[in-house]
Design a binder for these strands. Structure first.
Length: 270
DNA sequence: AGTCGCGCCTGGCGGC
DNA sequence: TGCCGCCAGGCGCGAC
């Protein structure tokens, strides 16, 4: 489900309830996630206090004094803060129970997400291979052009590549390419020098706007308070194949790139 | 080193 | 109503 704006929306929603709270229990109902949850390592957080909730790429970091719990929401995961006695539903796999009577509840029907301890080698390896944050200075047109100029793959694959820029998934990649007027199948190496400027601008803009609107709810994404995100109404192309282009009114087309649905306007994007 | 395609899962939807 | 195939917001990994 979540791309960076949805993860950031979750972070902002849960942090006020969690900060400075002591963890009194961690209930793992189903630890068969993307990687098996290391119960022993994760439950070492019981009795510790949460200093802050931060985010790197699409990972949420529940920061304790010496280490963190690293949570990824995968395709269908979400986090909500509920009273600790709320009966769990079928896909509520993990509860982080807090001293204040609330609990952070992790729901993930498809179980593509993960809960790792920052002490696990896998966790450090995952974090170490990430490229720049899209909203950071480090992600700029020089960087993007440098990354593109040798690559034969379609530009869409590049902006979805975590080593080039993190957090841009299928929705926002599709939207950004429309806004930049670049055809998603265009070979990255054929991008002329000034187009990365436009592309970095629109990636930043689309991510920022989606964050202010609480992310995109397609099906079941909810903010921490259970409300949907409102960016869906701003989508220009994603999920609109066959419908008129908002610019030229001709029908939008669909193709598949890297096994992901890709919608574009063949007249406005080249 | 870059690129490709697989597979991890469940659920919802459209077609028959 | 029921079954079946297809599709879905991610992403690491092994194979070339």
């Amino acid at each position: 489900m979540p791309e960076l704006p949805e993860v950031e929306t979750s972070r902002r929603g849960i942090e006020p309830h969690l900060i400075n709270q002591t963890i009194t229990d961690i209930v793992i109902r189903n630890g068969k996630l993307r990687w098996p949850v290391d119960k022993v390592l994760i439950q070492q957080a019981i009795g510790l206090t949460i200093n802050k909730i931060s985010r790197r790429a699409k990972y949420l970091l529940i920061e304790l004094s010496d280490w963190s719990i690293m949570v990824h929401l995968g395709m269908s995961g979400s986090l909500r803060v509920v009273p600790k006695d709320t009966p769990p539903n079928k896909h509520d796999h993990i509860d982080l129970v807090l001293w204040n009577g609330l609990c952070l509840r992790y729901t993930d029907p498809r179980r593509f997400g993960c809960w790792l301890s920052s002490k696990q080698d896998r966790a450090t390896k995952l974090l170490n291979t990430l490229g720049p944050e899209p909203l950071s200075e480090a992600f700029n047109s020089d960087w993007l052009f440098g990354q593109c100029k040798q690559r034969q793959s379609p530009i869409k694959q590049c902006i979805m590549n975590n080593q080039i820029v993190v957090g841009v998934g299928n929705i926002y990649a599709t939207e950004a390419l429309f806004l930049a007027g670049i055809h998603p199948s265009r070979k990255a190496a054929s991008i002329s020098k000034k187009r990365p400027t436009k592309l970095t601008e629109v990636i930043k803009a689309v991510i920022e706007k989606a964050i202010t609107q609480g992310g995109t709810t397609l099906k079941d994404f909810t903010q921490a308070d259970g409300k949907p995100g409102y960016f869906k109404q701003s989508l220009m192309v994603y999920g609109r194949e066959g419908k008129p282009c908002v610019t030229c009114n001709k029908p939008l087309e669909k193709t598949v790139l890297g096994q992901r649905a890709t919608v574009f306007c063949k007249y406005c994007q080249n």
